[in-house]
């Protein structure tokens, strides 16, 4: 209920901070009994800073998910799959975390989420579609998904920005794979289009 004290809150506290984009968080659990699509569920969407935190504070941390689960945060309207029209012509910057400590996994994932919703790549923002964390026993992976992989300059800027927020050492290279290559790859490793 609106209490009397509500009136004295400063504008800062009452007015929520709008995000540049509306984002949707998805959860994927690898349940062999169900089809891939049925295993993918949208949790909710939000478009304010406060909306993000209210959600983040009420979901399980990534490091505690079972192997085979994913969290995906994508701009509202884009499905977290390469088949989506906005993802198909694009690709992803992929960071293999290997078996890092749980709190590092959670820190990397939170930095990635803040990188996305804070529009850290301001002028490249258009190219950013979303981010995914794959929780896997053999090594967790975090990726930033973008549109049109041919836009080299913008894609490289996003990669450098992402690497920066993760505080990865310069010598640790991260690579960018176009979805088209990943789909048609023969070996386990798709050829990477870029690396920073």
């Amino acid at each position: 209920t609106e209490t009397q004290s509500q009136a004295v809150l400063s504008p800062e506290e009452v007015i929520k901070h709008p995000l540049q984009n509306k984002w949707a968080l998805w959860f994927f659990k690898n349940d062999k009994a169900k089809s891939w699509a049925d295993n993918l569920r949208i949790i909710t969407a939000f478009d304010t800073v406060e909306g993000f935190w209210a959600l983040f504070n009420h979901i399980q941390s990534a490091s505690k998910l079972q192997s085979g689960c994913d969290y995906s945060l994508f701009k509202d309207g884009i499905k977290p799959m390469w088949e989506d029209g906005k993802n198909k012509p694009g690709g992803r910057w992929l960071v293999n975390l290997g078996r890092t400590k749980p709190q590092d996994v959670d820190r990397f994932w939170l930095e990635s989420l803040l990188f996305l919703i804070g529009e850290s790549c301001d002028d490249e923002g258009e190219l950013v579609n979303g981010g995914v964390i794959n929780v896997r026993g053999k090594g967790n992976k975090i990726a930033i998904w973008t549109g049109n992989y041919k836009k080299e300059e913008g894609i490289l800027k996003i990669g450098k920005g992402f690497k920066e927020v993760l505080h990865l050492p310069a010598k640790t290279l991260i690579s960018y794979e176009a979805h088209a290559d990943t789909m048609s790859k023969t070996g386990s490793m798709a050829k990477s289009r870029y690396s920073v």
Partner: peptide, 27 residues
């Protein structure tokens, strides 16, 4: 103004958001 926020700015709000969002699925 620009809706661009760096991580330090965003982190300030984490503590205050304790109310569970409406309509979350039961997972």
């Amino acid at each position: 103004g620009k809706k661009q926020y760096n991580r330090d700015f965003l982190l300030q709000f984490q503590q205050d958001c304790k109310d569970k969002p409406e309509g979350l699925p039961h997972i």
